[in-house]
Structure formats: structure tokens, C-alpha cells
Design a protein around this nucleic acid. Sequence first.
DNA 1: AAAACGAAACGAGACGAGCCGTATTGAAGT
DNA 2: ACTTCAATACGGCTCGTCTCGTTTCGTTTT
Lengths: 207, 207
Amino acid sequence: MSNEKGPDHSRRKERSRQAILAAARALVTEETYEKVTVEAIAARAGVGKQTIYRRWPSKSAVVFAALLALSEDADGQSVTLPDTGDLQADLKLVMRATVEEFADPSFDKLIRALNTEIANDAALAAEYREKLARPLDEAKKARLRSAQKAGQLALDADLDLALEMLYAPLFQSWLHRSRPLTAAYADSLVDATLRAFGPGTGARSAH
Amino acid sequence: MSNEKGPDHSRRKERSRQAILAAARALVTEETYEKVTVEAIAARAGVGKQTIYRRWPSKSAVVFAALLALSEDADGQSVTLPDTGDLQADLKLVMRATVEEFADPSFDKLIRALNTEIANDAALAAEYREKLARPLDEAKKARLRSAQKAGQLALDADLDLALEMLYAPLFQSWLHRSRPLTAAYADSLVDATLRAFGPGTGARSAH
DNA sequence: AAAACGAAACGAGACGAGCCGTATTGAAGT
DNA sequence: ACTTCAATACGGCTCGTCTCGTTTCGTTTT
């Protein structure tokens, strides 16, 4: 697509692109999302405003791209959950790690900003699901399928529903600050979810 | 409290107060939250901007107050859930009703606005929990306690956790638009929650 | 009782500041 | 040379403050 004839300007573009995303990320972690301005991002990145508007259509898009890029780096290629053969132990490990992530103030501000954007913009929400949520969910579901084969989870369990019941309460408690996020809470969620979807629970219907 | 000597202007205050809150509510349901301006609220209410700023410190506070007032009216005094003696049926009724509420575009916009505010302001979040979330949760917990007495729920079930696992997935699915909200989905949540917290599940620990 | 008074609350809108997104220009990179 | 860039000016919009003249309504005077 960019195999044109002219001189190669991709290095400049890439450098300023990285600077913009880094500046956006830094500002979101420092201030609350509403206070982050395009002008501040440009100033911090040592970049003209027009350079930002050349690439992204709005402030939301820039910030969203910054958050996307963040986790694309972090993920590397493949996301895999631990699989020691003990589903309950593995899930508690993961859930406790998630609890600790939410305790980090920078992570907290970042995810709040991300949620503010996707809650009010259906298009961004779709992109978020596609690029961030889905890969993670697939990794989690892979672990659950492995547990089904090992007889630790009902064969007819609705894995999407199980994941929701595992994660949504944690997410909501954090979003609304309605209770402290502790390791014990993480464990309780795992225990309750396994009671609902464990082997022999007849997960499809309780009649 | 207000047993001063001076003349009583409370009638004027109350009239303009109601007009402001009604205008704020109307605008939030018509536009998206970001597009609602204080000036628009003032114009719609037939009120000067200063009258708004005399009472509330910021735009967020006005809109939040408007949403609070809305449900204070709706609630009347006491919130009670149906109790036919069949917990599963009663919960499905309530969850299906909740699903339908979220399908209403006005309600959708309203709750998205409310969530945008409380997600980014810890003080508003606390007020929200105190005045809106808690009374509803207490009503739901009352129904669950009744079910415990009827032997339809484990006696040592963590009721707060059960409520979260029932409602948080619905809330998150709606917030992120990650799946269609159907009656079948509502039923699945009830079924799964009852499998986790039903009688004889040893709800406190699964060891 | 009727009229005049005065304090509080009010509607309207001007104002400065900040931000958004666009347009222009001259410098720097390749 | 040709492109991309930083810097900056700009119009438009919103916020929250401030001022000004008006309306409301209990009190006081007649």
C-alpha cells in the first residue's frame, strides 16, 4: 500500500505517532479523562495539533488509540492462561492478579478513561470488543474448555455466561467503587462460579 | 432550621428548581450527555444560568440531581419485589423487567449519563450508592432472605455476592453492548445464580 | 383593608478563559 | 525538490463569573 516511489517519510511519521500516543497515555494517567486536551497532548508530544488531526478524527479516537496501543504491546502475540490442571486454583490466580491490577492508580485511571469512551460511543465499543476484549475472552474460554475435558466443568456449560459471572461483578464493584477488591473477594467469585458451572450441575437448565 | 425572621421565598425557589431538573432530564434523554449544556438547561427551564449556579456547583451536579430526583419520585416510599414463594419465578420476572427497561432508549441514555458521571467522580458515586443503589439492593436482599427461610437458598449464602452475580453481567453486557439483552439471557442468569447459591450448595466455601 | 416598601431570588446576557477542529506559514527532514 | 512538520492564528462553542434591572412576597405603613 505504501510502496510508492518517493522518499521514505515513514520514520518521521512513526516517531511522531509514538510520541503522540505516549503523551496521551501519560496525560490520561496524570489527570482525569475530561481534563486531557488535544492541545496538551500536542504540547507534551512536541507536535503540532494538526499532526494529531491528520491521523485521528477526534480526541476520543486519539485517546482510544493510545489505550489500544498500550495493550497491544503488553499482549505480545498470544494470551494464555495458566493451566496446571486445577481449574479452581488457576482461576483464583488469575482473578487475584486482576484485582491487583485494578489497585494500581495508573491502571485505574486508564481503564476509567477507556470505559467512559466506549460507554458513550457504540463504534468505539465495537472496536474495543474486537481488538481487546475478544482475544482475552478467547484465552479464558480456552482454559475453560480444557477444564471441561478434564471433567472440572459441566460439558454443557455456557462458557460466555460463566466468564461474565466471574468477571462482571469484579468489574462493576471496581467501576462503582461499591466494595473493596480483595483476594478473598476474587476467591469467592471463583468458588461461586464453579458451583454454578461445575460438573454435574446441569448447567443448561435447573428444572 | 429555617426559623428566621425574613420573608419566605421558598415557593419561587421550588418552582425554578423543579423547572431546572425537568429540563435537565428532558435534555439528557434527547441528546447524548456530552451535548447537554448548562445554557441549554437554563433556556429550556426559562431560567437564568446564575439560578442554576446558585444551587449546584457544576454541570455534573445538576444533571446528577436531576437523575436522583427522577427515581426518588418513581420509588415512592418502599421498594418491594414480588414474593410468590417461588424464588426462581420471581427473580426471572424481575430480571426480564430489567432487560426491558434497558431496551428503552430514554432509559438507556439516562443511565449512560449517570454512569459516566459516577465512574469518574468518587463523591457522586458514593451519593449514588447511598440514595439509589442501596435501597434497591436492600429490597432485593429482603426477597433473598425470604427465600432462605423458605429453604430455596443456602442459609450461609453471601447475599451481596449473589446479587452481584445476578445483576453485574446484565449491567456489563448492556454497558459494553457485548450481547443482546433477551428474556432468555435473564433466565440464564437466574438459573446460574440459583445453582451457585441454592440450598445445600455450601455457599461459603467449595473446599 | 389597601398601598407602599424592601430583601431575597430572579431572567437575561456580557464577559474572560479554555478547548475544539481548521487553515496558514515558514522551517526542517529526506 | 518535495513532503511533512511545528507553531500559531482563528472562529465557534461552552463553562462559570459577574452585573443589572425586574419580579415576588412578607412586612409595614396608612
